[in-house]
């Protein structure tokens, strides 16, 4: 999967794991945002840092996750500067540029504000 596939959307890329309490606390919020802002172009993507797919699937089913979840690997973590603590989320604008990095117990209202700001920006695809 490439982020290119989501060009034109605002992407919230969330690194999480089943063993991370704060991650599981914030995921219901992401589920709600995915429902609320889907029509405006928000796409949330989860990246699991669990050691096993089975563990991740268990958490996804419990939480009723409504956005795609990918499994991480060391190369992917390095691409994002190393994921050496959770939770970490990256907000990516419609052009595919990194806009914000949220780490630890990030304020949900600040995160939502940033998402709304990016959703409000005009996007003109190249060549249009």
């Amino acid at each position: 999967m490439h982020l290119r596939a989501y060009r034109g959307k605002v992407v919230l890329l969330n690194f999480w794991a089943s063993w991370c309490g704060p991650c599981l606390t914030e995921m219901p919020r992401f589920i709600a945002w995915q429902n609320r802002y889907r029509a405006q172009g928000l796409q949330i993507l989860g990246v699991s840092m669990d050691d096993s797919v089975t563990t991740s699937l268990g958490s996804m089913r419990r939480l009723k996750v409504n956005y795609p979840i990918l499994m991480s690997d060391p190369q992917l973590s390095l691409l994002y500067g190393g994921i050496l603590g959770l939770p970490v989320s990256f907000l990516i604008d419609r052009r595919g540029f990194l806009s914000q990095r949220f780490e630890g117990d990030a304020s949900s209202s600040r995160m939502e504000q940033q998402i709304l700001q990016l959703l409000g920006q005009r996007y003109e695809p190249q060549g249009a």
Partner: peptide, 13 residues
């Protein structure tokens, strides 16, 4: 990276 699945469900009220 492997895509696990993509499901659309709604939060319980």
């Amino acid at each position: 990276m492997h895509t696990l699945h993509s499901r659309r469900t709604f939060l319980l009220q």
